[in-house]
Amino acid sequence: MDTDIALKTAADLSPFALFLQADVVVKAVMLGLLLASVWSWAIILERSRRLSRLNREAAQFEDWFWKADNLDALYEPASRANHPSARAFIAGLNEWRRSLAAKGGRIDRDGLRARLASAINVSIGRDIDELSDRLNALATIGSVAPFVGLFGTVWGIMRAFTGIAASQNTALAVVAPGIAEALFATAIGLFAAIPAVIGYNRLLHRVNRLEARLGAFAEEYLNLLSRQIDGLERN
């Protein structure tokens, strides 16, 4: 008899049973947190794969860049590429061509350098902003999910105590399910928050590293263009 009661209690305290027994408000909290967890994992996996791909392509493009005989030869393959290094290269070379065509024989060296730096940095900034965009969702989930879960717990405990007062029975078998389903909401909140926080910090670090890599490439690219500007000035 005691074994049957124990098995029934264990079944009643399973995660699925706790969800079914929960109040509609607590169910809504649980479902919202589960959806937030799925969303955060989708962002983490998508951004991780994308950053890995972008780093591989950046390394490949930089290798092509330094092996190219001239910048014009890289223009066509770079225009077909879909990564920040190629877009920064295209932005700089387009500005270079427009400036030389507009100025004719006379070149404003400082102005051209400033425009080239602006075009390249704007291109890099757009890509970094786009990569960082969904990370805000991870930060929000990581900071808000525990409090949403806590709200579900508080609500569930209030209902549990109300039920205890109404039944006037404080036996553990009566109290345990209501308390357990309330605490389950906090557990789901932590289940959603912890991966989101870890994913946000890790992905932000990888985005910052990619930004630093693109910044270093931009400096080398600008130095190369600057030397070409000096050569034009001497002609």
Rank of each mutant, 00 (worst) to 15 (best):
M1K: 13
D2P: 08
K8R: 15
A10L: 15
A11E: 14
L13S: 06
F16N: 07
L20K: 11
A22R: 05
V24M: 13
A28K: 08
V29M: 02
G32A: 09
G32D: 05
L35D: 01
A36Y: 04
I43L: 03
E46W: 09
S48A: 14
R49A: 14
L51D: 01
S52I: 12
S52K: 13
S52H: 12
R53F: 06
N55K: 15
E57P: 04
E57F: 03
A58C: 10
A58F: 12
E62M: 12
E62H: 09
D63I: 03
F65C: 00
F65N: 01
F65Y: 14
W66S: 09
W66G: 05
L71S: 05
D72F: 05
L74M: 09
E76Q: 13
A78Q: 01
S79D: 08
R80A: 14
R87H: 14
I90K: 05
W96R: 03
R98A: 11
A101I: 02
A101R: 12
A102S: 10
A102Q: 07
G104F: 06
G104D: 01
G105E: 11
L112A: 00
R113K: 15
R115Q: 14
L116K: 07
L116A: 03
S118L: 14
N121F: 05
V122F: 09
G125M: 07
D127K: 07
I128V: 15
D129A: 15
D129W: 03
E130C: 09
L131G: 08
L131C: 06
L131W: 04
L131Y: 03
N136V: 14
A137N: 04
I141R: 03
G142F: 01
S143L: 10
A145I: 00
A145F: 00
F147W: 09
G149H: 00
W155A: 01
I157D: 06
M158R: 09
R159M: 11
R159T: 11
R159Y: 06
N169Q: 10
P177S: 05
G178I: 07
A180H: 04
E181A: 08
F184N: 02
A185Q: 01
A187V: 11
A187P: 02
L190T: 06
L190K: 08
F191I: 12
A193W: 07
I194T: 07
P195F: 04
P195R: 09
I198S: 06
Y200V: 01
Y200T: 00
N201S: 10
H205G: 13
V207Q: 01
N208E: 11
R209N: 12
A218F: 06
E219D: 15
E220W: 05
E220M: 14
Y221V: 07
L224C: 10
L225W: 00
L225G: 01
Q228I: 11
Q228L: 14
I229Q: 03
E233G: 10
